[in-house]
Design a protein around this nucleic acid. Structure first.
Lengths: 145, 145
DNA sequence: TCGACATAATTCATATATGAACTATATTAA
DNA sequence: TTAATATAGTTCATATATGAATTATGTCGA
């Protein structure tokens, strides 16, 4: 009567969510330690990282690319603006939209942080072969469609 | 002078953290919708899920298995206790430790939620072949050592 | 052109994450 | 045995996540 056969239940730790969380739990502290040196949180860095490539974009697009929920973005952007790293500008074409742009200070931060982030990335990259990376990316994409 | 060659910088969206976040972002809402029906958050469910398999464990062990930070656990456990799903008991052997145990109500909840969680898991499982699952698990483990 | 509906951003209430500090208890070395 | 140190759990301050509601603006069809 709806009872679950424990033998058919995957062990908690081998469930897909927990495997993904465990990987993140292992790799993110190193990133966060780095961001901390520049007085940035992980989420703040994500926003800057996107703007460095694609400046002057709407909040909605920023939310989509960074995966940061819109309500969270409000506060995160507030704090980045307070640090004089970026600015809000209401769009002229569509008054509902708000464009986010880097300040000079926000742009300059890239040169400071990016090299170390790249170094972390390189060390991660070295843990798998090219074939393994392609395989991992392909498999992960099967869920994020 | 420390400038980053943009061609060597992996696109933000293809970085390992973002690929992992994107997979989670895609699969977790379905779980959360389910938990919501039973007035549970994702984190609250994680704790119950562990206790259903291994009851009466310390907060430290619960933190380790669920990956929930100890400071967060305090409040999460408070709310589960308030809902009469589990109890705290200070350990006799080591007075520093606190043992967490399910109440009858907490135990009974398993029969209600677990089948639907298993159903979600089965649908996820169907997206990959057995070989692909093994491959994915092996690759993810390379980071969570 | 007006009213129904849609969209972008924000606000709100509540829950959780993060890192530092703290309390109580346990352990260890001199 | 006692002082130094370690550990388990908690508290604190701040930042972020989640889902619902709200405000301002746009769009579309009768």
């Amino acid at each position: 009567m709806n009872y679950v056969d424990i033998n058919e239940v995957p062990a908690f730790s081998t469930s897909l969510p927990m495997q993904l969380y465990r990987a993140l739990d292992a790799i993110m502290p190193e990133y966060r330690n780095l961001f901390y040196k520049y007085d940035l949180t992980e989420q703040q860095w994500r926003i800057l990282r996107v703007l460095w490539t694609e400046n002057n974009i709407t909040v909605a697009r920023l939310s989509k690319i960074t995966l940061l929920p819109a309500p969270s973005l409000v506060g995160i952007l507030d704090r980045l603006i307070k640090k004089n790293l970026l600015v809000r500008n209401r769009s002229e074409k569509d008054r509902r939209q708000v464009q986010i742009s880097l300040t000079t200070k926000g742009q300059e931060l890239q040169q400071l942080v990016a090299p170390s982030v790249l170094a972390i990335h390189s060390r991660l990259k070295a843990r798998l072969s090219n074939e393994e990376w392609q395989s991992l990316e392909r498999l992960l994409q099967k869920f994020s469609v």
